[in-house]
């Protein structure tokens, strides 16, 4: 691990000023410490934000507001989260291990780096780690990689589970930088790799995630997260699906759908959502909508199975959500 200076600012303003001048934020550290030890990352200054007042979970009207420093385990176990947005709790528990969920913050979860093995392999080409060095995954072992949103420069998936749920729930986030605050949909945090895969998110230098806001609605309780993976727990998704349905008079009024494990960012499927609106929540409608999910898919040598697994996962998740009383 390269040497660094650890800064412990007492105020959010001081933290933002430090980060705006080049320091890196650290909260749980579950991604960053690991990558620093591997020398994939080598920040010279770290800003420990854990003492800042950015934790906690609160309810404002029908909105659930989750502080950026709230830990994954804390959010998953929170009675208000379980009551108002059970999809968030379900997706969190499916991610990582109990120890890591006790450590990892919600803001850090959204900003975690990819799990592509070549990203960590210093002698392999990786445009995300070393721009211009190529992508070893495209011709390498790529069973875990993306089929949607890829480019000739990067095919890594975004690894978060809860980000998929937040995108499906149209969650927004509030960030603060040296020029003030702004709010935007969580979906807009994530960039497509294009020809600049080293740029992963849309935060400006020094911007700090303050909180995540999730509006409640009739869809919030017909919402499920299905994660398909090589092990029953503690494994990244091959394919996952977050589904929230609002059903009135036996007809789907609105479907919300996002998938993980297949996209270079948490992947909302607007075409599938549109196809489900106005349909009865039945298997045939689910299958017809799910077939649209792989439009534009670019499978690689080892991950062609995802082209079949993705619609199947969506159908099963829709059935699970439809079965919620």
């Amino acid at each position: 691990m390269f040497p660094f200076v650890l800064e412990k600012p007492q105020s959010t303003e001081d933290a933002i000023a430090a980060a705006a001048s080049g320091a890196r934020y650290i909260a749980g550290g579950t991604t960053l410490v690991d990558l620093m030890r591997e020398e994939v990352e080598g920040p010279e200054r770290l800003v420990d934000i854990n003492k800042l007042p950015l934790g906690g979970i609160r309810v404002e009207g029908e909105d659930l507001v989750i502080g950026a420093l709230a830990r994954m385990a804390e959010v998953a176990a929170d009675p208000n989260v379980q009551r108002l947005q059970p999809l968030i709790a379900e997706s969190l528990i499916e991610g990582a291990s109990p120890q890591l969920r006790n450590m990892a913050s919600m803001g850090g979860n959204l900003l975690q780096r990819v799990r592509c093995p070549y990203f960590r392999m210093l002698d392999a080409g990786c445009n995300k780690r070393t721009p211009g060095s190529g992508c070893a995954a495209i011709e390498g072992l790529n069973a875990g990689h993306a089929i949607l949103g890829t480019s000739d420069h990067c095919v890594a998936t975004h690894p978060s589970d809860v980000a998929v749920a937040l995108v499906a729930l149209y969650a927004t986030m509030r960030v603060r930088g040296s020029k003030g605050e702004r709010s935007f949909p969580v979906e807009e945090l994530f960039r497509l790799p294009g020809d600049t895969p080293h740029l992963e998110h849309t935060l400006l230098p020094g911007e700090l995630i303050m909180e995540i806001r999730v509006a409640g609605g009739p869809h919030s309780h017909r919402a499920r997260y299905l994660k398909v993976r090589d092990r029953a727990s503690y494994e990244f998704a091959l394919v996952s699906a977050a589904v929230a349905l609002s059903i009135e008079g036996g007809v789907i009024r609105q479907a919300r759908l996002a998938v993980g494990g297949v996209g270079t960012r948490p992947w909302r499927l607007r075409n599938c959502e549109a196809a489900l609106a106005g349909k009865r929540p039945e298997r045939q409608a689910f299958e017809e909508a799910a077939q649209l999910a792989t439009q534009g898919a670019r499978p690689l040598h080892h991950n062609q199975f995802k082209v079949e697994l993705l619609p199947r996962t969506i159908v099963r998740a829709l059935e699970m959500a439809g079965e919620v009383a």
């Binding site: 550290g29 579950t30 890591l100 450590m103």
Partner: peptide, 27 residues
């Protein structure tokens, strides 16, 4: 593993189980 994957380094910090290999003492 020293990378947070195996759990052999699990300890309780402030009553919660964590993997101590990914936790900087200085924090």
């Amino acid at each position: 593993c020293n990378q947070g994957a195996c759990g052999a380094c699990t300890v309780l910090v402030d009553g919660r189980r964590i993997v101590s290999c990914l936790t900087l003492a200085s924090m």
